[in-house]
């Protein structure tokens, strides 16, 4: 190893950018946790008050609970639907490219468009979905206004938006499963379901893991769907982690507390991802 001036010149812009836009905010976030600040008046040292407030903040726990509800619906649904459609596509069929491209459309369209569109589709009185239910003689459903259903509805929309990406990831995984494993199973007389359960699923487990992690990070970053569709209601049941940080920061100008929330939620994402990794490693030992 030696000093290499050109190398340092190439790296310098990155280090500068990192120091200003990641390093400094990182340090500053620790400072903010101990302060109250509305940006306009001077910062005020409040010791552990923000932490104390967080522990007793009903809305913080509500947002955490909402995120858990979202993830418990979103992750299994995402995996089952994506895997099912990927298996259907991983056959000798015509138009495979067309189907794959069609499923991918919601992935590339802005979340803003998706949220506005589904807000209209799920509307109680004028929405197309309730219109359909009524036309086949079923009662209307309060997709976004019933406090028990609002978060499941948003989880449904988020799944609809992302599933095309996971279909593609699963397809890549499925194509990596060696053919001879299936041929061997055929000789043994295994059923289609047995082959799926004993060959396909273990082989594509890294992809399952990836989907779980990406969906978890996505759940903690949920923002635009509740912001547009419900505003966090009804009864705060769709208040997401990020929406709550945003509200504390930009409705109330509690910057110290908003930073404390950000810190807490960031630690929680990392903790949840770590636990998931341990669980999945134990389960399959890959």
């Amino acid at each position: 190893m030696k000093h290499n001036r050109p190398a340092y010149l190439l790296i310098a812009p990155y280090l500068l950018h990192f120091s200003v836009f990641i390093g400094f905010p990182l340090v500053f976030s620790f400072v903010l946790i101990f302060h109250r600040w509305d940006i306009i008046s001077p910062m005020e040292w409040v010791g552990l008050k923000n932490v104390h407030r967080l522990i007793h903040d009903r809305l913080f726990w509500q947002a955490l609970w909402n995120t858990a509800v979202f993830l418990f619906l979103h992750i299994p649904l995402q995996i089952v639907v994506a895997l099912f459609l990927a298996v259907q596509l991983n056959q000798r069929i015509a138009l495979r490219g067309f189907f794959r491209a069609a499923f991918f459309v919601p992935v590339i369209v802005s979340g803003v468009v998706i949220a506005i569109l589904w807000d209209k589709l799920m509307a109680y009185d004028s929405g197309l979905i309730n219109h359909f239910l009524a036309s086949i003689g079923l009662p209307k459903i309060g997709w976004l206004i019933d406090h028990r259903l609002a978060m499941p509805s948003i989880a449904l929309v988020a799944t609809w938006k992302n599933v095309g990406l996971y279909i593609v990831l699963f397809l890549v995984g499925l194509q990596g499963v060696p053919r001879h494993l299936y041929e061997a199973a055929d000789i043994e007389g295994a059923s289609g379901w047995q082959k799926f359960w004993n060959i396909t699923l273990p082989m594509i487990n890294p992809t399952v893991y990836l989907v779980v992690i990406l969906s978890t990070i996505g759940g903690f970053s949920l923002f635009i769907e509740p912001y547009i569709m419900t505003g966090g209601g009804p009864l705060n049941r769709t208040l997401s982690a990020l929406l709550y940080i945003y509200k504390q920061g930009f409705f109330f100008y509690h910057m110290g507390y908003a930073a404390t929330l950000g810190f807490a939620f960031a630690m929680l994402v990392m903790l949840v991802v770590l636990i998931q990794r341990k669980l999945i490693e134990q389960e399959v030992g890959y």
Binding site: I11, Y14, L15, F18, V20, F21, I22, F24, P25, L26, F28, S29, L32, W37, I39, I217, F220, S221, A241, L242, I245, G249, M255, A258, A259, G262, F263, F265, A266, V269, M270
Partner: peptide, 24 residues
Amino acid sequence: AISNLVIFTMVLPFQLTLIPLYLL
């Protein structure tokens, strides 16, 4: 060290730096 720094930055949840970055 710099390679590790880049990886660290990528796994860092953005919720952590969002508010301080805004204030900056």
